[in-house]
C-alpha cells in the first residue's frame, strides 16, 4: 500500500485545518456564494469551510498580493527599511486549475534570469492542499482542454479527491511539504488507510473526475499559428466590445503583470507593487506620450498573444489554465476559449 495515500473523513476537515494552525497561517474557502473566498482560518471559524464552490478570486494573492510594500525609504537619510515576511502558510481547498496557475507564476517570477525575491520567499513558505473537483464549479470551466484537469496534480503538495460515496477524501501526499501536512494529520489521528489494494474490491476508491462543461479543441501548434496571425483583422473584431475594465486580469490565476510606484507617507516613501492590467490605456504609455499599443485592438492582441504564444515561446507553457473565470465575469462577453479555438483553425 502506498504509504503516502491515506483517507480522511469529510467530517474531520475542521479538525484537519485546526491541526495545521500551530505550524501555519491557514487559508481555506469560506463564505457563501458570491462571498466565497480564501479566508484566514483560526480556531473559531474552521467550521465555516465551504467545499462546494470555487472562490471568484484565485489564491494567487497569497503569493502575489494585490498590493504590497517592497520597501520604505527614509526621505531625509535615504535609509531603506524592509517589511516583515510572513511565515509558513498552508492553503486548503485550492482547485487544480489554480495550482496549475501557480506553476505558471513560478516560471514568470523564478525563472529566466532574475529571481523575484519577495515572491520566492512566499512561495518557499507556501503549501498547496489541492481539492479535485467532484462537481465542475462553473459553466465556463475548460481546464481539461488546457493540459490540466478536474483532478490535476500539478503544483499540488497534497491532492484530495472525493471517494465514490462522497463521505471522505483520498489524500495523496505528493511532496516533502505535503508529507509535513501528513505528519500533522496523522498525529491528530485523522488519517486511515484507503484499503485500495485490499484483496476485496476497493472499499473507498477515488471517484473519477467529471468532464468540464466547456470542451474546446486546443491545437498543438496554437502558439506558432496565432503568433503568425499578428496582422489578422480578427483582433479588431475580438476587441470591439472590450471596456478595458481589467476584470479578466483581476480574476485570472495566471496574470502577473504589475506596476511599481512610490507613495509619500510622512517622512517615508513607500515603494509598492500592485497588480496591473495590460488592457489599461496607460500600461505601456511612455512619459513622452508615445504608446506602442495605442488602442484596445493592440492591447487585446498583446494580452492573448502573451497568454497563448509569447509565454509559450519563453517558458514552454500556455498562460491560460482554463479556469473560465474571465469568460464568466467579463461584462462584455469576451471569450478566451473562442480565441483559442479560432487560433487552432488558422
Amino acid at each position: 500500500m502506498d504509504k503516502n495515500t491515506k483517507l480522511i473523513q469529510k467530517t474531520a476537515l475542521p479538525d484537519a485545518l485546526a491541526a495545521l494552525l500551530p505550524d501555519y497561517r491557514v487559508f481555506a474557502p469560506a463564505g457563501e456564494n458570491e462571498r466565497l473566498a480564501f479566508t484566514r482560518i483560526d480556531a473559531q471559524n474552521a467550521f465555516a469551510l465551504c467545499l462546494s464552490g470555487t472562490p471568484l478570486m484565485p489564491p494567487k494573492e497569497l503569493l502575489f498580493p494585490r498590493s504590497e510594500t517592497l520597501y520604505g525609504t527614509d526621505i531625509k537619510t535615504g535609509d531603506v527599511s524592509l517589511p516583515q515576511t510572513a511565515g509558513p502558510t498552508a492553503v486548503f481547498g485550492v482547485r487544480p486549475c489554480d495550482a496549475h496557475g501557480i506553476a505558471n507564476l513560478d516560471c514568470a517570477f523564478l525563472e529566466k534570469g532574475y529571481v523575484d525575491s519577495a515572491y520566492a520567499a512566499r512561495r518557499e513558505a507556501l503549501t498547496l492542499i489541492v481539492l479535485a473537483c467532484a462537481q465542475i464549479p462553473y459553466e465556463t470551466c475548460f481546464c481539461d482542454s488546457m493540459g490540466g484537469g478536474p483532478a490535476g496534480s500539478e503544483g499540488a503538495d497534497v491532492l484530495l479527491t472525493e471517494t465514490e460515496d462522497g463521505s471522505a477524501l483520498v489524500a495523496a501526499f505528493l511532496t516533502g511539504k505535503g508529507r509535513a501536512v501528513k505528519a500533522l494529520w496523522a498525529a491528530a489521528g485523522l488519517l486511515s488507510d484507503t484499503g485500495a489494494d485490499a484483496t476485496t474490491k476497493s472499499a473507498n476508491p477515488a471517484k473519477a473526475p467529471p468532464p468540464c462543461n466547456l470542451r474546446i479543441s486546443k491545437d498543438k501548434g496554437l502558439a506558432a499559428k496565432i503568433a503568425a496571425a499578428f496582422d489578422d483583422p480578427m483582433w479588431a473584431r475580438f476587441s470591439e466590445a472590450c471596456l478595458g475594465c481589467g476584470t479578466c486580469s483581476f480574476v485570472c490565476p495566471t496574470c502577473y503583470c504589475f506596476d511599481l510606484d512610490s507613495e509619500n507617507r510622512g517622512g517615508t516613501a513607500e515603494e509598492f507593487r500592485c497588480w496591473d492590467c495590460c488592457m489599461f490605456s496607460d500600461y505601456s504609455r511612455m512619459a513622452g506620450g508615445h504608446n506602442p499599443r495605442p488602442t484596445k485592438k493592440e492591447r487585446l492582441r498583446n494580452r492573448y498573444l502573451h497568454k497563448l504564444a509569447y509565454f509559450d515561446e519563453r517558458y514552454g507553457r500556455t498562460l491560460c489554465v482554463g479556469c473560465g473565470r474571465c469568460i464568466g465575469k467579463c461584462p462584455a462577453g469576451l471569450d478566451i476559449a473562442a480565441v483559442i479555438e479560432w487560433g487552432g483553425t488558422l
Partner: peptide, 24 residues
C-alpha cells in the same frame, strides 16, 4: 530601443515586443 519599463528584470510585463523583453 525605448519602452516603458517598471521592473527591469523581465517580470512586470509591459516592455515586451513579442516574447522578448526590452529590459532583459
Amino acid at each position: 530601443l525605448e519602452m516603458r519599463m517598471k521592473c527591469g528584470i523581465g517580470k512586470c510585463g509591459r516592455c515586451n515586443i513579442g516574447s522578448k523583453y526590452v529590459c532583459l
